[in-house]
């Protein structure tokens, strides 16, 4: 479970305070596939970042209970540019207490980066980096995956492959997927929250959520 305990988030910008999330009190199940629908700039990514721990709530707290939570799927920013793929994988494997050899093989097998594994990650192309990140996300088993907009990485072929492998791998696991696209939410999620003007409106039924989103979030 991810508990949002009176969480509130705003940004102080040069042009004034921007409220992203009003005081929110709810629990998000980590064993279900949960979607968060919202328009561009509604604060979906900030919400995801807060759940991951990158952003901090302005007040209140987020408690992650008994769940192995992934980092945002395919996020490549966590790699240390001066380290090789091998070293980066070893760091992540150690961090999550999984077998390094196994994680390395799975990642290497998936990411198709070949002899580059022993080069510093900063020398990688964007595509290679995102394939590596996605492969690493797959190499470690999580209870709940955090996903920002898209499942998959790289070009369309690789994207199809990664989507397929991911869905296979994540069977039975929960996910928290934030997206502006009702089609994506409909495809992957069971229940949903609509982020509407700083309020997380909960729905047990996807279609209700999409209906609400289409009607009320429209400009």
């Amino acid at each position: 479970m991810i508990h949002l305990i009176d969480v509130e988030k705003h940004f102080n910008t040069d042009v004034g305070v921007r409220q992203v999330l009003r005081e929110t009190r709810l629990s998000i199940p980590t064993d279900k596939r949960v979607g968060v629908l919202g328009r561009n700039g509604a604060g979906k990514s900030t919400l995801l970042n807060m759940v991951a721990g990158v952003d901090q709530p302005s007040s209140g707290m987020i408690v992650r209970e008994n769940a192995r939570l992934s980092w945002p799927l395919g996020y490549a920013g966590g790699f240390h540019g001066d380290l090789t793929a091998r070293e980066n994988i070893s760091f992540v494997a150690r961090l999550y207490d999984v077998d390094y050899e196994e994680a390395f093989e799975l990642t290497e097998d998936f990411a198709e980066i070949g002899s580059y594994v022993d080069m510093p990650v900063r020398t990688y192309s964007g595509g290679m980096k995102s394939r590596l990140a996605f492969g690493l996300s797959l190499a470690i088993k999580f209870d709940c995956y955090l996903i920002d907009e898209t499942i998959g990485a790289g070009d369309r072929f690789f994207r199809a492959k990664s989507r397929q492998v991911f869905l296979e791998q994540s069977k039975g696991a929960g996910m928290l997927l934030v997206s502006h696209s009702e089609a994506t939410i409909r495809e992957y999620c069971e229940i949903a929250l609509v982020l509407f003007d700083g309020v997380l409106v909960p729905f047990a039924d996807i279609e209700d959520a999409i209906d609400f989103y289409m009607r009320r979030c429209a400009p």
Partner: peptide, 20 residues
């Protein structure tokens, strides 16, 4: 919104306890 919030779906009802 008021109606939905006052009758939260069971999935999202706050579940933490002091023990948590």
């Amino acid at each position: 919104v008021k109606k939905i919030m006052s009758n939260m779906p069971a999935e999202f009802v706050p579940r933490w306890t002091p023990e948590t």
